[in-house]
Structure formats: structure tokens, C-alpha cells
Amino acid sequence: MIKLTSDQLDQFITSLAEMWEVRLPILLSDGTRIIGSLKDGPLALLGGAILSKPTAAFFPQHGTVFIATEDGVPESTDSLQPIFILGFTPRDLACLRFIDRFFADGFCDDLYFHQRKSAVVAGISGYCGPYGSLLAPAGGDCDLEFFWEGSSWLVIPYSSAGKALVAEFTDSAPPEAENRYRQAVMTPPDENERFLRRASELLRGNSVPDSFWVEIGDRCIACTGCNLACPTCTCFGVQDWRSAKRVERSRMWDSCQLDGFMREASGHNPLGSEAERSRRRIHHKLAADPEKWGEISCFLCGRCDAVCPTGIGIIAVARELVTRFG
């Protein structure tokens, strides 16, 4: 385990810029933290998850699929600079693992893996959550992890790419620090995790009446934020922009909270009410995905609860559901 002071971390980050396009948590003028470049704001590693999902680096809100002109579809000549991205919390890393698998399943989504393949992903954990709270280490799911133990960083490389990056450093972490790390790994699941698992059981056992979803649906203003903010939401829409002698096809994040998401050309809609759509949003993550992928696809990153203007993110709904039905 490597120990770095904040200054050493700064130097390390600076040294990466030559090879990599470095993206990491920074603070912007109005106090918002985002994952961006140090050119745009000071480093802001402490504070927990970033409001905007870090997986956008590989699956952006809007991305070009192709541009066709009279001469066909020209190959992209952009030389790709690989990304070094720091700022995934352990929960974000679980989300990333989930969508890595999703985008590779069956056929490989080239657009997603275009940047993803060559990227180095660094996790962040330790006592750097909101108000110094603990983010239990991921212990994997990334190339290397940065663990804030209160006054310095412990760096734990996992993949060969991660190891290569920190090869120059010697294992310097004192035993107390390593201990703190080990204790952190043992952190028991938090309350929200228990609520989520119980909610999943209730849904799979069909114990939640439709009237509950009518209530939740009545509170949904269809802002789509819960989907757009969610690192494991992968649905997208496709549009073509046509102008004289040119077609630009792009894809953009879509949302199952929209009526048009499932509406058929006839006008019929299998998800034609807010209640059905709200049920689907939760059900998909807690009941359908476990069937297909063997795990709940919500990793409690907290974003949908943070962006939902009416307080019906998944954690709020799971709590309400468990409180009322079991």
C-alpha cells in the first residue's frame, strides 16, 4: 500500500497530464463539484459522490453515432487520448461494473467502449464522504483506488494498468494506516442497503399494491432526472438531423418516466400511466435486473434522490414501501 500526502498526490496528478487526459473532481464557481479538468477549477476530492454521474465519461448525455455525407461515412480521424478518471466512489464503481457488463453483453457497444477500453479508472474512498463520513473501500472494480484516511491518501493498485501507473512509488503506508483501511473494508451494510434489499423482496413477492404506484406517480413531474442522473440507467434515444447532403445520427439519454418512451406508433402505450412508469423505474432495478443479471442494479449512489425535485428517488421510495408493506 502506498501512502501519498496531498502534495504528493498533486504532483502525481500533474505527472499524468502528459500521457492522459486527466479528469477528476473539481469545484466550480457556484460551489458545484463536477468531474472535469484542473484547468477549470481547483481539485475537490473530499465531499463524496459528484452530483453528475461519472459514467458520463463513457456514455455521454449526447453522442454522435455517425455523420454521413455524399461520400459515405468518413472514418473518424480524431486521435484518441486515453482518459485517466478519478472520482468514482465505491458505489459508482459498482455501477460502472454493471454497465460495463451490460454494454458488452451480446454485442459490444463500440461507442461506449471507444473511450472506456483505454481509460484508467480510479476509485475514491475513505473518510472523504459528506462531512468526513466513511466511504467503504471498493476493494476492486477499478484500476486503482485512493483511500483518504484523514490526513493522507493510501493508494491501492488492482489492475496491471493501475500498478504500472504507481510503479515508481514504494509501499510506504504505515501499519496504523493500513489498519484503518482494513477496518473500513469491514463496514457493515448501511440502513439504505437493508431497505433496498427488503424492497426488492417485496416487489418480487408481488406484495406492493398498484395504489402505491398511483400515489408515487402522482408525485412524479416527469423531469427525467432520476434516469439521467443514474449511472446504471442505459436507455437512449436516437435522432437523425438531416440537412442538404448530410445526416448526423446521434443518441441521447432517454427516460422511462416519459410517456413517449414506450408509446407505440398506434398510440397504444404499455406504460401509459405515471403509476406504471414509476413502478417500472423501481421494479426494473429491484426485480427485473436481479432476474436477468443476478444482482440489484441500484448501488445506492444517491443521485436519483438528490436530483428528484419531488422526493421520490429510489431510496425514498424503498423506505416508504418497506415502512408500509413490510
Binding site: 457556484d30 452530483l51 453528475s52 448525455q61 453522442g63 438531423w241 441521447m252 427516460s255 436530483v307
Partner: peptide
């Protein structure tokens, strides 16, 4: 290529409505 809400704004407080989330999308329209 997209929109990210302000986390600190006193009115929007980290959220947006569907129009805000899509406010980037017409800008480069042909």
C-alpha cells in the same frame, strides 16, 4: 453534449425539469 444541474442553486437545488435537462439539444440544429 449535455447539461449538468447546479448542485447549489437556491431554486433548482440540484434538479431540473425535462426542458432544462434537454436545453442543450436544439442549439446545433441544422
Amino acid at each position: 453534449v449535455g447539461v449538468e444541474p447546479s448542485a447549489t442553486h437556491p431554486v433548482s437545488r440540484g434538479g431540473l425539469c425535462v426542458k432544462g435537462w434537454n436545453a442543450y439539444a436544439f442549439v446545433h440544429h441544422p
